[in-house]
């Protein structure tokens, strides 16, 4: 009798756990995001990212303030689109993204992703997280979703900061695509949003890589350093012409393809390649992280 009762209670418990599982996952995700985004470190990273467009904007303003002539005297040096900023503040969004994408953005992602699992292990909180009836796979997915949300947030922070600075310092209006055709300001804003999304999507592979590295160690700092180190290594290797045969498989190789969204008509080849590559990195390193995280002994 008592045995049957016990069985019934345990089934009931199991049901109680299972039925609200979707909500539960969202709760976990919300909790996770809240913890991540509330951290001073995260806020500092976002602050740095927001500062980049401000610096670029002010620098361009001062530079062109000295001369009466139009910008573009730079002879096309510097990040893409920089010569058009003085004529249209919207271009500051593209310039800021082009300036932050090679290093600032992925570095921030590397810090957040590298810290996601290893940081918990380091602080000794990982085992408590696993006590919750969430399962390791779900916890890992939640962690990854949080990192992806950070990718999007970080990109939008740069874009919004750049748009604000651009609107304050420079005129806005219809803009010329790099193919020489005119588009309205509204369409330009749409393109800017698309570009922000493309940039955020470019970081998906990097995020999965960071998550995988994070499952390998229980030192948060080591994971962050490894991820950022890998980023720098890949960026350097991508510059070496002798390696051109393998360069198309580096996660950073097609990052600047977002500029193709400013062509008319949009040139999709590299954008699609970039998305495919990011999906591949996410699949490979995501599943590697899963294989590692679901089988490793959690001691702390």
């Amino acid at each position: 009798m008592s045995q049957a009762e016990a069985v019934r209670t345990s089934t009931a418990q199991a049901q109680a756990v299972r039925t609200p599982s979707v909500l539960w996952t969202f709760g976990l995700l919300r909790n996770e995001m809240w913890t991540t985004f509330r951290r001073w470190r995260t806020l500092a990273l976002l602050g740095v990212l927001a500062a980049v467009p401000i610096l670029v904007g002010i620098a361009v303003k001062i530079e062109t303030g000295d001369r009466s002539g139009p910008g573009g005297g730079g002879g096309g040096a510097g990040p893409a689109f920089i010569s058009q900023i003085t004529n249209n503040g919207l271009f500051l969004v593209f310039t800021a993204l082009a300036a932050t994408l090679p290093f600032f953005l992925p570095m921030a992602i590397g810090v957040i992703a590298g810290d996601s699992i290893a940081g918990e292990a380091n602080a000794g909180t990982l085992r408590y997280l696993l006590v919750a009836p969430a399962g390791r796979t779900r916890l890992l997915l939640t962690k990854y979703a949080t990192v992806l949300a950070f990718c999007l947030l970080a990109t939008l922070v740069v874009a919004v900061s750049a748009l604000t600075v651009g609107a304050l310092l420079f005129p806005l209006g219809d803009l010329t695509t790099i193919s020489g055709t005119q588009i309205s300001f509204a369409e330009g804003l749409g393109r800017a949003l698309l570009i922000a999304l493309a940039v955020a999507a470019s970081l998906v592979g990097m995020a999965a890589l960071g998550l995988f590295v994070s499952t390998l160690t229980s030192s948060g700092i080591a994971a962050m350093a490894t991820t950022v180190g890998l980023l720098i290594t890949i960026q350097i290797l991508d510059q070496i012409p002798q390696l051109h045969a393998i360069q198309p498989y580096f996660f950073s190789h097609y990052w600047l393809s977002f500029a193709d969204l400013m062509r008319e008509p949009i040139y999709w080849d590299d954008l699609v390649k970039n998305l495919g590559l990011q999906a591949l990195y996410a699949a490979v390193f995501g599943s590697a992280a899963w294989a590692r995280f679901t089988t490793k002994d959690i001691a702390s």
Binding site: N87, N88, T176, T181
Partner: peptide
């Protein structure tokens, strides 16, 4: 094929 020089272009 429409082209108008952008503002500020040389």
């Amino acid at each position: 094929f429409d082209f108008t020089p952008p503002k500020g272009a040389k």
